[in-house]
Amino acid sequence: MADDALLMAGTAGAIAAIALLRFSWSRPQRSAWRNALGWFLLAASLAAGWIGAGAWGVSVIALWAMGAAFAVLAVAAWLSPPAKRKPSSDRAGMLPEAGEPWHVGRRCATFLLVVLAGLIAAIALAIATRWAALLIGTGEANANVLALFVAPLGWTILTFLILMADSRRRQLGYLAVSVAIAIPALVTGSIS
């Protein structure tokens, strides 16, 4: 019963938080306290979901918050007048403009660094994380699941860093560090 009340309060709070943020962000002058209140209300709603029904409660309340935001967006789509400004024509730099060289070799090398070397480095990070977790006494189940989560997350961060890097040396550096972190685990082997 108390859990139901918490979930209902969390749901109402999440919808109110979106409404408050909408109101706050629509003002000509931004108000720090109104913004903070909106974010606090959203965080408190998720906390209520967690207390009421754990991860399930957080998920359900997050869906309500997103649904409320979509409803507000639908109103904006209906009421907004056409923009006066011209659309952007900024270059994203993905493909060469007319007459520019393609740099096919460089592009292929970057692709291989991200996909092939990135995957290997991500798995190395996963193995290192598992090893470190076991070293500090984490149980085998937790350590293995941690490794399974670290692989995609580590690869995400590595991909972003590699593609944001200004030089090939820095890209290789990120990959080398990731693999080097796994050396103690690879040298000492399993400690499970």
Binding site: L21, R22, W25, S26, A69, V72, L73, A76, A77, W78, S80, P81, P82, A83, P87
Partner: peptide, 9 residues
């Protein structure tokens, strides 16, 4: 721009 949606453009 979180709630700006100029759908008519």
């Amino acid at each position: 721009d979180a709630f700006r949606l100029r759908a008519r453009n």
